[in-house]
């Protein structure tokens, strides 16, 4: 199966956002013949990475799906927007890291899914460094 082309962009081309700031962007999907986009979920979320169990929390979520009343054209850009919270701030630790991202999940016909992400940084906590032996 040839995957459809997905474009996901943030409106401000910067990597660091401050708590309380607005984050916005847009996405569109150029479908390939033979594939049908059934639904799209856009979320702004944070998750942990490290040696322990993963924590994840969704700050913003929106789902758009085809229904019987109207056929949606996902080739048209769709805008999303949210005000970022005060915490948790992005963090680059050794044992744990906190990562923020915008995640676009595209549900295709026959149960296939494609995920596209744009990472960004919330706040400016200095990174930790591993202690070298």
């Amino acid at each position: 199966m040839i995957a459809p082309a997905i474009t996901l962009t943030l409106h401000e081309s910067r990597r660091v956002y401050r708590p309380g700031e607005k984050l916005s962007g847009q996405y569109y999907i150029e479908a390939v013949e033979g594939t049908e986009t059934v639904a799209v979920e856009i979320s702004v979320l944070w998750h942990t990475e490290g040696k322990g169990d993963e924590d994840i929390a969704v700050h913003f979520f929106d789902r758009v799906s085809q229904d019987e009343r109207a056929v949606l054209d996902f080739r048209q850009p769709r805008v999303f927007s949210t005000v970022l919270p005060n915490s948790p701030l992005s963090y680059e630790g050794v044992l744990i890291k906190i990562r923020w991202c915008v995640r676009l999940r595209v549900f295709l016909s026959r149960g296939k899914q494609i995920v596209e992400e744009r990472s960004f940084q919330l706040g400016e906590v200095p990174p930790a460094r591993a202690v070298l032996p």
Partner: peptide
Amino acid sequence: MASAGESPTNSPQSNPFSTRFIQP
């Protein structure tokens, strides 16, 4: 880069041996 399925995306700063990449 789009990734198929449920697998988490590995960002350039990610440690590839994090739980989220090696868990069942």
